[in-house]
Design a binder for these strands. Structure first.
Lengths: 338, 338
DNA sequence: CTGAAAGCGCTTACAG
DNA sequence: CTGAAAGCGCTTACAG
């Protein structure tokens, strides 16, 4: 099926040199006389030659591919992260191989195995909480990687870029507290976002506010629908609640929907705050107050660390924790008196 | 950096055979005696050997990778399509290389060039309308591909899977018409969705309804925000409008937001219909009436065609047009009398 | 500065 | 059924 393809040999032949000379000009090694360089470049242009990356990869051990492992890409957080990562990486000349795990450790392992056999140069993994289990595989084969960590514990000795999830939760709850809310409910992706919620509890505790366990709902699914169901249940049982803290925006969008369903205006009769700042948060109605994670900074940092490791050949473990920032929009207001 | 890796030679040595025998057992060629097969399999297991896909690709000309080219993945339509495609393809043993074009033809070309140099086996392209220009490159190098076509014209001689966009528009507008709407505005991704809108005009014309040009708004950007701005402008200028047809769901979500902003309840005082049926459509408030494109069927068909072409080595051009279906939810109702 | 040789890890005919 | 040889398209020392 494949049409004949022009190789380094064809170029060499046409330029009247050997293929290693062609290789030298391709790789810009300064050992070629200007004259023959010109000849070779002509031949390359005439023939439309481009090096076979497979062959090069086999010979050099460098494929210029890095793997990106994420739970999925229909979740906008990961979609946005992947796009940012791709942009950062491609400016460095790397192509990306995308792997989705769907949160399935078996699947993740299989995918990693295949990437390894394709001899990618390195990996960036967006931890879904189960990635930690596969780090052994990575270190075992000596594949450089950096972890865009979720808040769950990450392995020591790894290069990780993470957000300060505890602080994110703290900032969100502090905002509610400072607005004067005392009747707060929590809709959370539990246990995945435990740390965020702990931060929230800390902020509330500082104002002697405690959130009864019955006002904390874990979502069945990590989606808008999950947030909706959780909010419906908690708001129905506890109508006195004036504010809901969601552990991430997708859930908050569901809470928003539940509020509409229950006839509670936002922020007039219910305040909603969450964490993430995905694009949809600012486009919601009303736009969501949330604590922003700078995905783009995470992407740049991670890509930077990986590229440095690949270039230097040195592994430099360490944890970089990025600070989240409260973004006040229109889903929060002081509690109304009625 | 890379730790020592076990090769076919190591296996051969340990099993006391030559590497071509190992190759024979790996590729399940029925020429190996049960006895030596066992020995080799033992050696493979002991050493944890897995074939180097780069080397194999170079030797066979098959990389078992297929490229997926989409405009972006933050648009949920493409994200969902990519996930479906990946699932279909991986069951056939293919890994995917993802390319995002961001609608930039230059970028698209560069990416395709790189994929070609990586010797992927084939391609699936989700047309953003500009892909057509690159088909020459693909046919030139003889790379099998299938086009998940947008509605713009596609090259002849290609294998394409598309939706009947005209019918989609027709169904959407017919629904509004049958509900009794006569004052209709259009928010469209123009010219990308020209065909959908033509279908819509046809349905309306059948009831002698014409949509004045001033009631048709092209969006600046193909996003929620674009839909919002377009709807704000058209609804402000034409408050008598009772229904809006959007050319895709993302825009419709923006229209929904505009309706809220303008104090028009949906569907009480304004009906909204669109085309696509992305996940967010059913999760909107109210859930959107829309015309569904079965992305999953598109993904399966496309993957199926490509895989068949790869296996048979035969290119079979043709256009498969999938039928859309109206999904009535809660964003549409008869016009109110006031 | 250029060319002959060996090698990356696999597969594919082709003898024995 | 097994082994020796050549080749996929590149690169990397190493002579000249």
């Amino acid at each position: 099926m494949r049409v004949t393809v022009v190789t380094i040999k064809d170029v060499a032949h046409r330029a009247g040199v050997t293929k290693q000379t062609v290789s030298n000009v391709i790789n810009k090694r300064p050992v070629v006389s200007p004259d023959t360089r010109k000849r070779v470049e002509r031949a390359i242009a005439d023939l439309g030659y481009t090096p076979n990356l497979l062959a090069r990869g086999l010979a050099t051990g460098q494929t210029m591919m890095v793997g990106l492992v994420v739970p999925n890409i229909t979740n906008p957080f990961y979609a946005e992260l992947v796009e940012d990562l791709e942009r950062s990486l491609e400016t460095e000349g790397y192509s990306i191989a995308l792997c989705t795990t769907y949160g399935d450790p078996v699947r993740a392992r299989r995918q990693l195995e295949i990437l390894r056999r394709r001899y990618i140069d390195g990996l960036i993994l967006a931890d879904d909480g189960s990635i930690g289990r596969h780090v052994d595989l990575l270190t075992e084969v000596g594949l450089p990687f950096v972890l865009c960590a979720s808040e769950t514990e990450y392995p020591s000795g790894a290069t990780v870029v993470t957000f300060d999830h505890g602080r994110a939760g703290y900032l969100a709850a502090q905002h509610l507290r400072d607005l004067g809310h005392r009747e707060v409910a929590v809709v959370g992706d539990i246990p995945a976002h435990e740390v965020r919620l702990e931060g929230a509890h800390r902020a509330l505790a500082e104002a002697s506010i405690t959130v009864a366990p019955s006002r904390i709902r874990a979502t069945r699914v990590s989606s808008r629908l999950g947030g909706f169901e959780a909010a419906m249940s908690v708001l129905t049982e506890h109508p006195e609640v004036t504010a809901v803290m969601a552990s991430h925006d997708l859930l908050a969008l569901g809470v928003l929907q539940a509020a509409a369903e229950l006839g509670r205006t936002v922020p007039g009769s219910l305040s909603i705050v969450s964490v993430d700042d995905i694009a949809a948060a600012s486009q919601a109605n009303p736009p969501l107050t949330t604590v922003a994670f700078a995905k783009q900074r995470m992407a740049r940092k991670s890509a930077g660390f990986l590229v440095r490791a690949l270039k230097s050949g040195q592994h430099r473990p360490g944890v970089t924790s990025l600070s989240p920032e409260l973004v006040v929009r229109e889903s929060t207001a002081p509690p109304s008196r009625n």
